[in-house]
Design a protein around this nucleic acid. Structure first.
Lengths: 220, 220
DNA sequence: ATTCTAGTTGGCAGCCTCTGCCATTGTCAA
DNA sequence: TTGACAATGGCAGAGGCTGCCAACTAGAAT
């Protein structure tokens, strides 16, 4: 669509450019995010202005809004990344697995990564100490849920009423994995899989009917 | 603490005052909320300024911020009310019921009320048409979840790891009931209980393991 | 009826978030 | 060197939100 010259010479060079450009942008984004979360952790979310973030990151305030749609979007960046990790874990599972198995694998894998990354601990600390930060983050919760739900929907029969219930699965995935990670971080528990099993088991017991998970609608 | 005169005469009158005052405030709040949601539904969330809301409600913009902490709080007002309805429904259930039974009763009752109220339909319409409104509403999602989770926590054994999983129950309650209500409104289905059964059943089938809900950690 | 008092409201100044616009800078290729 | 083109910075302005003070209102005491 652009550049009408013969592609013979320009393509090899041109093929690399988008990649470099994208990675450059990603770098700046990370720098801004890093500066912002440091300040949030130190003095609070509301108390930090984007002017301060920009100064700490070494860019103009105007540029901050080129990399993030809003101040709350900086905070929500980690949530979206989190959702993307969950999706990747879901997509990596064999097609033959049940939803329950996929859910278990997803939780352990993502939680294991998160617990070991200092980045996660910083975010959890901010959210824990400043409620406004949690509110800012949840601004993108609907998107994150929809994204993760989409990953699960690919695995269930189409044209089924199950798709309705599957919409809930995204939110459940984010919340349960988040709870498990917080649990592990706060008690410095390194056996993530055990924590996942426990969370999943207690939830299953809690939510199921006393005897069994009878659905009683075999003909619907 | 205030008013050192004998309380004999002033108490009877004084006892009624807080109630009248509170109801007055509640009235103004509802007027503002009504004006705001009308405008949101008509021309969008971002496109509506609080100056316009104030004018439509017949108060000053300054007063709007006395009744609602922020513009997004006006939008989130319905979510908090929704959570309060869920809590009331949960608290009304006999103590002997299982979590599953309580969950079912809560969903049917609140969904039934919501489907019949035009107010709910207006809110669902706004959220459906303008994503920014959904984002504004989810600003209070963490609070709402915590509130509903608290209602469930009163019903499970204390000092148990189940409290961890119970934290998820609040979010699940809000989401599943919301999905069911939307389902009923969009298809103009009046048999709410049938919709609840279907949502709950499909979700149970989806999330449970193929054979049974084995937890496989009897000794932990 | 008048005065006192407390609570409610409106208006104003000012900070912060966010956006459109334009000038400047940096970079790569011809 | 020169000519694109993307990235950046600065600036003005709208809208969200708050602290402060003056004006108004309603009940209580006199």
């Amino acid at each position: 669509m652009r550049r009408s010259t013969n592609a013979a010479v320009s393509v090899p060079a041109r093929a690399a450019i988008p990649d470099v450009k994208t990675r450059k942008q990603q770098l700046v984004r990370e720098i801004i995010w890093d500066a912002a979360t440091s300040l949030f952790a130190e003095k609070g979310y509301d108390e930090t202005t984007v002017d301060e973030i920009a100064q700490a990151a070494g860019v103009s305030p105007r540029s901050c809004f080129r990399y993030f749609a809003s101040k709350s979007d900086i905070m929500a960046y980690s949530l979206v990344s989190f959702a993307e990790q969950l999706i990747a874990a879901v997509d990596a599972c064999p097609k033959s697995w049940t939803v329950r198995e996929v859910f278990h694998k997803m939780m352990t894998q993502v939680a294991q990564d998160a617990v070991n990354h200092p980045r996660s601990q910083r975010v959890f600390g901010i959210v824990k100490n400043w409620p406004e930060a949690a509110a800012a983050q949840s601004t993108r919760m609907a998107d994150a849920q929809a994204m993760v739900s989409g990953a699960f929907e690919k695995r269930i029969p189409k044209n089924s009423t199950a798709r309705l219930a599957a919409a809930v699965l995204g939110g459940l995935a984010i919340q349960m994995t988040g709870v498990t990670i917080r649990w592990c971080i706060e008690r410095k528990q390194s056996d993530v899989e055990a924590a996942v099993n426990e969370t999943l088991a207690t939830f299953g017991q809690l939510f199921s009917s006393p005897g069994r998970t009878e659905t009683s609608c075999h003909d619907r």
